[in-house]
């Protein structure tokens, strides 16, 4: 299965800018479906970005984050060709991980 995570990490020599797009329904638990039944909550709770074995950015999310969430941040350091590890875990315990090369 293709990864649910798409990451682009680009280094300008000084800082590394990271953009990530994740495929996830992010159901808040407040929305009803066509039959009028509540769609149970299903959202990513923790999204972690690790570089060189250390977290560089950690997102704690609730159901208020949009479907197929997008996030952008930047950190100091990070060399071209190095790995950036991205992983998430949702409220049902599902997880996904990917490793991106810094460009």
């Amino acid at each position: 299965m293709a990864s649910s995570i798409r990451v682009r990490a680009t280094s300008n020599g000084d800082t590394t800018e990271v953009q990530a797009l994740i495929q996830h329904p992010m159901d808040s638990g407040f929305v009803k479906d066509a039959k009028g039944e509540i769609i149970p909550p299903h959202f990513i709770q923790v999204l972690t970005f690790e570089y060189d074995g250390k977290p560089v950015f950690v997102a704690d999310w609730g159901g208020g984050v949009s479907k197929d969430p997008y996030v952008k941040f930047a950190f100091k350091g990070g060399k071209k060709g190095d790995d950036l590890k991205v992983s998430w875990v949702d409220n049902k315990g599902a997880t996904d991980t990917t490793t991106a090369k810094i460009q």
Binding site: T15, K54, V56, V58, D60, F75, G77
Partner: peptide, 17 residues
Amino acid sequence: IATYRIPAGTLPSVANR
């Protein structure tokens, strides 16, 4: 909605939806 943990060395700037 969301809370982002910013370790030392990460820039204090976040974009999301």
